[in-house]
Design a binder for these strands. Structure first.
Lengths: 348, 348
DNA sequence: TATTGGCACTCGAACCACTCGAGTGCCAAG
DNA sequence: CTTGGCACTCGAGTGGTTCGAGTGCCAATA
């Protein structure tokens, strides 16, 4: 991935620049770095290295007479060379442990608590993406007749997440039929994931000629009607969006408006996550890597959480490229690990 | 309410100023108004009236050599003297009719569609506040056992709105018991509002000594457990919050941050609505009248909607004090009336 | 007596010239 | 290869000037 490995000096200078810039937000000058690094280099030497780093694309100039600022590539290098596996501080761990112990493995509660927790700890935007509905495990399902040919489907997942949807049916089902259909589904399929159920229903449908059972027919129609519509669905909860406004890099109102519009259209964020993330450990997506102009100057830290070995969803934070990666990454990592073990234990 | 009635000239000048300011956003000078009004007054005369209006508190100066700008009191006067009952334009009515006909009287869909509709038509923030849960009419209720002493309550309202909540019980109910309890509740109480159900359950509880029926006991405990927690609840859906950023009066980032924080904390908006609104027709709350510093320079147009004579919720828009009241009021009025008749027809 | 033209005054916006200083790039000496 | 020196750049801040829209007030007028 990384094209050229930087030599020691360049490496340490780049690192200093990024660290210092993250701290202050100001462009960093050669004199500052010369004082900061223990190598005892003169500003002039530092300038030479800086010029090289700029040529290689790790740094830029806001203008001729300003200090250097990391580019996305610079941040990328910085993040890639961070020591992995750093632990959050004891205080942060305490806060996290306490919050998550109250949640247990309850996904429905986690969807409220975790984004808030992330947002509070990092002062950025915290988020959690639920597992796709197709992986949800059927606990309970209900069909409720609203009016003629309008049926409300209420689905409860093993972990207590409720989804619902109104179905337009081409037949007018009676309340009794609907209840029976619901009970049948629970009796037959409880404990399976929706995608499993879906394929079983399809198999049943193939045998439909042989089926004259009215109930079973209804079940097939209603069940597939519901499942077809929804299975790709994920939910995404964002929290602390106003934190973004605190950062000086977003003082431009128009940029910010577009950013918030992106927050409102969560599906765009979701496809972005889909595109960028491989489900393994913490991932960081920086600025232009996201390939979405509204997320310019933004970075995204994400980690998947899972039950057993099965990856389910993501959680993480969204903030300006200039953020404390070390701390944030360790927090996101810690939370996702802890939450995964809680989920897995609960699923037993 | 209005302290002094303005004489004809002052009235028409004030109205001109407000209209013109709404249009342009700029402070309005005497010369502009002199040209604009058909009375053929000279700028100097207009100035005199303006000075009077300022003394009475209807106008201000940004600074000595700028034109006049309406105060909240000025907008209030303007709004109060608008002809009530204006109709939206034919095009707007077309859009509204089409959107709402698709919704029918389905509250659950209206909660998505109406705020979006309002936001799109007015380019402001559109909102809808659901009826309080206590007025919801029971259609279906389910108790689902999640784990030991954790019960998920799923409640479906007549109009298809689903609410759910996890209950910590002090007893471990079996799945069968829970199902029976749900069915019992539906059989006995379907069609009543939650507050009615609540009082009936309390009456039953009073007779508890006489009740040795295990089922009934469970019903009482679960039912009141759920109802106690929630009955005051309303939901509020906001849409188009990013529209606010388009208005120059909110270019200050810090003000805007606080505004968005208010959007995130919807309960604050809800109590505000509670405080300011009497449920009759369209109401306008302007700036300081809201008595909430974050809503400075904001105005709120709201109208209640209802089923039969029974007031249920609100819908409307939120925008800067400088907005096209005439158009917005007529839109909000029209939508709330139309939606009310749809709801009432549906409830039959 | 209400209206109006005239006039001095105010104040923000825009523009310009200037300085200051942090920081650069480059070169020649070490 | 490193470094001190030096000329250069450019944004930010400062102060002065002009311009114009708008006001307030007063004296003249219908």
């Amino acid at each position: 991935m990384r094209d050229v490995v930087l030599d020691d000096r360049a490496h340490s200078i780049l690192k200093s620049i990024v660290t210092h810039h993250i701290l202050t937000g100001e462009p960093v000058g050669s004199r500052t770095i010369a004082k900061l690094t223990p190598d005892g280099l003169s500003p002039a030497s530092v300038r030479n290295v800086m010029a090289d780093l700029e040529e290689m694309g790790y740094l830029t100039h806001p203008h001729t007479s300003a200090g250097r600022v990391p580019t996305d590539k610079g941040y990328r290098y910085y993040v890639d060379t961070l020591l992995p596996g750093a632990h959050p501080g004891a205080r942060d761990r305490g806060v996290i442990d306490r919050s998550l112990s109250r949640v247990g493995g309850e996904l429905s509660e986690a969807m409220e608590v975790i984004p808030k927790l992330l947002s509070r700890l990092t002062s950025q935007v915290g988020y959690l993406v639920s597992p796709p509905l197709r992986d949800a495990v059927l606990k309970h399902i209900d069909f409720v007749r609203l009016h003629e040919r309008k049926v409300l489907v209420v689905f409860v997942d093993r972990s207590g997440v409720v989804s619902n949807r109104i179905l337009d049916t081409d037949e007018d089902y009676g309340e009794d039929d609907l209840q029976k259909a619901g009970r049948y589904l629970v009796a037959e399929f409880a404990g399976m994931t929706l995608s499993e159920i879906r394929s079983r229903l399809i198999r049943l449908m193939a045998e439909e000629r042989a089926v004259f059972d009215h109930l079973l027919k209804s079940v097939i129609k209603l069940g597939t009607g519901y499942l077809d519509a929804e299975t790709g669905d994920r939910r995404m909860v964002l929290e602390g969006t106003t934190n973004i406004m605190k950062h000086p890099e977003f003082s431009d109102v128009e940029t910010m408006r577009r950013l918030f519009q992106t927050f409102e259209e969560k599906h765009r964020l979701l496809t972005l996550l889909d595109r960028c993330l491989t489900p393994s450990g913490v991932r960081v997506v920086i600025g232009s890597e996201a390939d979405d102009p509204t997320l310019d100057k933004m970075a995204l830290v994400a980690s998947s959480y899972h039950v057993d070995e099965h990856t389910t969803g993501w959680l993480g934070i969204l903030g300006p490229t200039r953020m404390e990666y070390e701390r944030v990454v360790s927090l996101v990592d810690y939370i996702s690990r802890l939450f995964s073990t809680l989920l897995t234990r609960q699923a037993l």
